[in-house]
C-alpha cells in the first residue's frame, strides 16, 4: 500500500454513473514520517477520512475488492487510516 496525506477533495457531478455518492479525496503521497512528496492522486474514500489524516491507499485492480467498489471503475482506494508507524522501534508517526 502507498502512504499519503488527505489534503483535499475532488467534486464531480458528471461522473460515471456507477459510483453515486462516493467521496473522492485529493491525496498527496508521503513517507513514513508524513513528509509530503507533492505527488497527487485521487482516491475513493469509503472509511470516512478527515482532512490531514495519513492514510493507506491501495492502487490498481485490487481497489475493486470491496463490497462498495465491486466491478466499479476505480484504481485507487483508501483502505485505512494510519494511527502509528514505528521504524526500528522508534515511533516515526503518531496520529
Amino acid at each position: 500500500m502507498t502512504l499519503g496525506i488527505v489534503v483535499g477533495t475532488v467534486v464531480s457531478s458528471s461522473k460515471d454513473e456507477q459510483i453515486q455518492g462516493a467521496r473522492y479525496l485529493l491525496i498527496d503521497k508521503c513517507n513514513q514520517q508524513g513528509e509530503k512528496k507533492g505527488d497527487y492522486l485521487v482516491a475513493l474514500d469509503i472509511v470516512g477520512v478527515g482532512p490531514n489524516e495519513m492514510v493507506m491507499i491501495s492502487e490498481g485492480s485490487t481497489a475493486r475488492e470491496t463490497m462498495v467498489t465491486k466491478n466499479k471503475p476505480i484504481d485507487a482506494l483508501v483502505v485505512g487510516i494510519i494511527d502509528i508507524i514505528d521504524e526500528n522501534d522508534i515511533i516515526v508517526y503518531k496520529k
Partner: peptide, 27 residues
C-alpha cells in the same frame, strides 16, 4: 479498472475518463 464502465466494457483500454471535475479543494 478502465474496462469497468458501460462504454468500455470488453474494450482493449487501460485508461478511461470516469469524471468531469467541478471543484478541487485543497486545505
Amino acid at each position: 479498472s478502465a474496462r469497468y464502465t458501460n462504454t468500455t466494457e470488453g474494450k482493449p483500454t487501460d485508461s478511461t475518463i470516469i469524471a468531469i471535475v467541478d471543484f478541487i479543494e485543497k486545505d
